[in-house]
Amino acid sequence: MPDLPPDDQRFLDAYTAASGGEAQSNPRPRQGSLASAVPRYLASDSFAALSNETRSSRRRMLDEIRRNHGTGLVRDLRTKHVEAALSKFSGHARNNRLKVWRAFGKWLEDVYKIEDPAQNVKKSPVPKSDGHVPWSKKEVKKFREFWPIGTSERLAFEVIFFTGARISDAFRLGQGNVDQEGWLVFNQQKTGGEVAIPFSRPLPDFASGMQSDLQYLRAALDARSDKHITWITTAFGTSRSVKAAGQWFAAKARAAGIHGRTAHGLRKSRSQALAEAGGNSVQIGAWTGHESLSEIERYIRGLNKRKVLSGTETEQKVPTSATKVPTQPKKTGESNA
């Protein structure tokens, strides 16, 4: 994009061409129209403050707004227009677009001095769901038996399963993320928060039973024929695309006879395992990168309560007060990582 103000016509023409249109064959957007407001919002500090992953998904929906409603003037935008734009969708698809409209609407209110057109739009009711299902021990064993050490499928599994990282983070990890003290350190793409997981250092006492999972991960890493910047690569030795990674992994699980399970389900499995082992909310959050009590509660829902109660004397897993969970462990080797 040219280094020009976002309301400069040359910037708008370049944006139109870059998003699939041709500036020379399309009429220039009217000043004050949604077609001119969308690229201004995309160039704003408000949009830049979002994570890379969020920007990528929202950019597509904003382009949808520009194409379908670009001729309308911002000053005429009302709640009924947003509701009409969302009426073509239902459930999660509608709610995801409503999130975009709400963020866009707040920006329009601030920049164009109009009343936020999305603030009174209600979300669609959706069936309650636990989302991604945690993997059972039998499913973990089945995947390991089908995909042996030395395969890229097994390596991806062990990285995701031990770290409990989102797949968008797991596929960016490599030896460069291991610091001198033996912590596997990375910043989450979704939240920007730092995570540090014990890797080449003793595991905290409550997680000592996870040593076998760490050994599986190290064995998978040692079995790589070629070493690259990132651990998980394609057959051609290149870093795997994060966008297609989730579908790729789910397909490999199905090939092993495991249906309805995802990479994110492994993240839930690690969270529950940490709770069942005696980890408190601070320790779980430090390992998985969850920053609030509500997130941790949601991820450990359905854990084996008998294991929790029959374990060693540890702190209660989930405190009753809503506290912010720190994501950066102390560097003294204590067990809050």
Rank of each mutant, 00 (worst) to 15 (best):
P2C: 12
P5W: 10
D8V: 05
Q9T: 12
Q9F: 08
D13P: 08
A14V: 06
A18G: 14
A18V: 09
S19M: 15
G21C: 02
Q24W: 09
S25L: 12
Q31V: 14
G32I: 04
G32H: 09
G32F: 03
S33T: 01
A35M: 12
V38E: 01
P39F: 14
P39Q: 13
Y41I: 15
S44L: 04
A48W: 07
R55H: 05
S57F: 14
S57E: 09
R59D: 09
R59I: 06
R66G: 09
R67Y: 15
N68L: 15
T71W: 03
T71N: 02
L73E: 08
L77P: 08
R78I: 02
V82D: 02
V82R: 08
A85S: 15
K88L: 01
S90C: 00
H92S: 13
H92K: 06
N96Q: 11
L98P: 07
V100Y: 01
W101V: 00
R102N: 02
G105A: 05
W107K: 06
D110H: 11
V111H: 12
E115I: 10
D116F: 04
V126F: 02
P127K: 10
D130P: 04
G131M: 05
K138S: 02
V140L: 15
K141G: 03
F143L: 11
E145W: 00
F146M: 13
W147T: 13
W147D: 06
P148L: 03
P148W: 10
I149W: 13
T151F: 14
E153D: 13
A156Q: 06
F157I: 00
F161W: 10
F162S: 11
A165P: 12
A165E: 03
R166W: 05
R166P: 08
I167N: 08
S168D: 12
F171R: 15
R172P: 00
R172Y: 15
L173N: 01
G174E: 00
Q175Y: 14
N177F: 04
Q180F: 03
G182P: 01
V185L: 04
V185N: 04
G192W: 02
G193K: 01
I197R: 12
P198F: 08
F199P: 03
F199C: 08
F199I: 11
S208D: 14
Q211T: 03
S212Y: 08
D213G: 12
L217W: 11
R218V: 09
A220F: 07
L221K: 13
I232W: 00
T233Q: 05
F236E: 04
S241T: 05
K243Q: 14
F249V: 09
K252C: 00
G257N: 11
G260E: 05
R261S: 01
L266Y: 11
R267G: 01
S269I: 06
S271T: 12
A273H: 09
A277G: 00
A277S: 02
G279D: 04
N280D: 13
N280F: 02
I284F: 11
A286H: 06
A286L: 06
G289V: 07
H290N: 00
H290C: 10
E291N: 01
S292H: 02
S292C: 01
L293G: 13
L293V: 14
E295T: 08
I296L: 07
I300D: 07
R301V: 02
G302Y: 05
R306L: 10
V308Q: 07
T312D: 15
T312G: 15
P319E: 11
P319H: 00
S321K: 10
A322T: 04
A322S: 14
K324Q: 13
V325Q: 10
K330Y: 09
T332N: 15
E334T: 15
A337S: 03
